[in-house]
Design a protein around this nucleic acid. Structure first.
Lengths: 356, 356
DNA sequence: CCAGTTTAGCAAACCGGTTTAGGCAACTCT
DNA sequence: AGAGTTGCCTAAACCGGTTTGCTAAACTGG
């Protein structure tokens, strides 16, 4: 019994023990048909008794492939996971990575820097979610050496992308509320509370807002900056947003929320204010997450194929990975949205209707 | 203009271009103080114009560290993300990994094999969540060469672990229902639909069931195998579970769900059956996820510190990583649970109460 | 001016695998 | 018997960095 510290066995140990070369050991694991039956199994047996496993990092370096893709988000992971949209999206990409045997690494800013995080990430390609054109570090992503697919972000010709028709979806939501007779509207945006001079029309928030506003404009309804409040896309975020708007003196009869989570929070917030949904307050969400059917009342919302979005992004990325490097990965896929009317929307209450 | 394919620049390219050795370039990046001011910045400048970034895999290999930890779950990722418990847990671990500059890799079975997935994972340590002692590949985890922290799993002396006092929590839930007068109970378990001969008392499900049953036994209430139905820990899973039980002829007045997601589904399922919650049906969940306050009625549930669980697991793991190898990482931390009474529970309806 | 100490940078070993090019026997064919 | 195959295995180069001595020059003090 030796008292030497137990080092992880390496390929050379197996080779020596089995009386063969390193190459032979490597072949035994990766292309056993290049060895005689007996030799291969003898090597494998020796490896097993030694507890040898090929070192994954060394392997990655040698084959120049990690068989892992990254999901990159510009927000800290803890924040990202707070939004129920995200797990659903992740489900989509996980479905295809699982199927194709790829690993999944979550990339978030390293000490505030996306560039540093990307430099550290050992992935073959990256799915970027929720990046705004105005982000200070977009360049570090554009200049990435690995294939990139953008999700819900401005389309760059050199990278593939997948998104949904946000503006049309937003229009449908607004039309619905207006058709019911609402004229006092409140928009609950989902941006993380980054200070932005204004909403770039490039981002998700911007596109949806444009949709809401174009409908408002069509009907002579005011929907200025003061009727837009933003918060995190979470239950709490939505609840706070409504309460804040209320205490600012706004008295909307209809709320256009940019996420179901926020919408659910708005419903709850309304309850705290003594408002019945939909009798006193209508709210329409965005996403159509599973939870939207399970809150009370079931949420009227704009459906978008979130999981599919993840799947498509992953598929596009894996496609780019298997194509010769340099070939255009620039497919841009836009998925459809549609309004799903449930029971969180109704005509505005009498006094408001009279006013309208 | 050369037509050579653009190779990623490597350290040797920078060295040549800057007229220094590879070591100097390495120092410029990792310990610039070992170089003169000018040399260091000259190297960095050359590196910048060349677009050079140290290759992360090569670096990992050389320093024998990945600065990444893994979250391993025995179920496919797509399934894991469907359970709202998980993102919350992930939030916890992400909080500390973000803070400490570690990456986060999600490890799920590779083509059905946990062992294969682990062999491929380039991580310094692993947090294992939701592993049952009966899992066929536990051994490949016990024998892992990297530090491991088990969450909600049987404590192994050689690995640290964190869990909660499931049985006490479950007892509290059952006591609550029984105290309200319920005697017709249904348990909704959260196991993935793996065929198990019986519920091992080692697993989460087993421990909670033991808690429920011990209370039932104390009060002479029957809670046999036929009153336990299991399904995925999702809204849909809970809904289906109740409907299935109902169509099997069970007529519970109180439901003990092992997850909030399932509990929310049960509430919805009850609605479909024309049952009012809590008037006709009481349901108590487990977890106390954020959503439990936002469904209607707000859910009575057993609180467990899910996010904290993630944080503690990550902290324990990082601690083990920074300790000398071989030192005992075997701290076992049990967090507390407590019943949170909201509005999904009430005395059973009259006919049942009369019967009881 | 010389011994002793810093400073700046280099060469070479190393991390742990994969893969290409080839060598040597044994076998086949003529 | 000699040339050409085939089967099995090896040596050596390579992936792209980090790190450990070590040397040569510059500086310090007596």
């Amino acid at each position: 019994m030796s008292n030497a510290p137990v080092r992880r066995p390496r390929i050379a140990d197996v080779a020596r023990e089995a009386g063969v070369s390193k190459s032979a050991v490597s072949f035994a694991f990766n292309s056993p048909q290049r060895l005689s039956q007996e030799t291969a199994s003898r090597i494998l047996a020796v490896a097993a008794t030694l507890g040898y496993r090929p070192h994954p990092v060394a392997r990655m370096l040698a084959v120049r492939q990690t068989t892992t893709i990254g999901i990159l988000s510009p927000q800290p992971l803890a924040q990202v996971f707070a939004n129920p949209f995200f797990p659903l999206f992740a489900q989509g990409v996980a479905t295809v990575t699982d199927d194709r045997g790829f690993g999944l690494l979550f990339i978030s800013p390293l000490h505030g820097s996306l560039r540093r995080a990307m430099e550290r990430a050992t992935v073959d390609g990256i799915v970027v979610i929720g990046l705004e054109e105005s982000h200070p570090e977009v360049e570090s992503i554009r200049g990435s050496h690995v294939p990139v697919i953008l999700v819900d972000a401005p389309a760059w010709p050199e990278h593939g992308s997948v998104g949904v028709d946000d503006e049309t979806g937003a229009r449908a939501a607004a039309e619905h509320l207006v058709a019911l007779g609402h004229r006092e509207l409140l928009v609950v945006g989902v941006e993380p509370p980054t200070a932005m001079a204004d909403f770039s029309p490039e981002g998700v928030t911007g596109r949806r807002l444009a949709g809401y506003r174009s409908v408002a404009a069509d009907h002579g309804i005011e929907l200025g900056r003061d009727r837009v409040v933003v918060g995190p896309a979470t239950f709490e975020g939505g609840e706070q947003s409504l309460l804040r708007a209320w205490s600012d003196g706004l008295r909307p009869t209809g709320v256009l929320a940019m996420s179901d989570a926020a919408a659910a929070g708005v419903v709850q917030g309304g309850r705290h204010l003594g408002l019945k949904v939909p009798d006193d307050l209508s709210v329409v969400g965005f996403d159509d997450l599973p939870l939207s059917r399970f809150i009370d009342p079931p949420l009227t919302t704009v459906h978008q194929p979130v999981r599919l979005k993840g799947e498509e992004a992953a598929r596009l990325l894996l496609l780019a990975l298997s194509s010769p490097p340099g070939s255009p990965s620039g497919e841009h896929r836009i998925l459809e949205t549609r309004l799903v009317v449930r029971r969180s929307t109704a005509p505005p209450p009498e006094p408001a209707r009279a006013r309208g």
